[in-house]
Simulated scan of single mutants.
Amino acid sequence: MKKLDTGFYNRADVVKIAKELIGKVLVTQFGEVITSGRIVETEAYAGAIDRASHAFGGRRTNRTEVMYQPGGTAYVYLCYGIHHLFNVVTNQKDIPHAILIRAVDPIQGINAMLERTGKKKADYTLTKGPGNVSKALGIHTGHTGYNLLQEEIYIANDDFTPGKKDIIATPRIGVDYAGEDAKLPYRFILKDNPYVSGKKANHSMSL
Rank of each mutant, 00 (worst) to 15 (best):
G179N: 07
T64P: 06
K200N: 15
T73D: 09
I153E: 00
V15H: 10
L21E: 09
L126S: 08
K2N: 14
E43L: 03
K200Q: 14
L148M: 15
A98W: 01
L149W: 13
L207M: 13
I22Y: 04
G58Q: 12
I167K: 10
I95T: 13
K3Y: 02
T28Q: 03
V14E: 02
G57W: 13
F86Y: 12
R172I: 07
I189S: 03
A156W: 00
M1R: 06
I34E: 15
I155W: 03
F8K: 05
D5K: 08
V66S: 03
T170A: 14
Q29F: 00
R172A: 07
Q108V: 15
R38S: 04
K191G: 02
M67S: 02
H83C: 04
I155F: 02
Q108D: 14
T35H: 06
Y68R: 09
H54T: 02
K2C: 07
S53E: 03
I82E: 04
D94M: 10
H84G: 00
A98Y: 00
P185R: 07
M205G: 13
D105M: 01
R11V: 06
N147I: 13
A201K: 15
I189L: 15
G138F: 03
L207K: 13
Q92C: 01
V76E: 07
M205P: 05
G37S: 11
I101D: 01
D13K: 02
V33N: 12
L100V: 11
D159P: 05
T127H: 07
R60M: 07
L207Q: 13
Q29Y: 00
L184T: 05
P185F: 05
K164F: 08
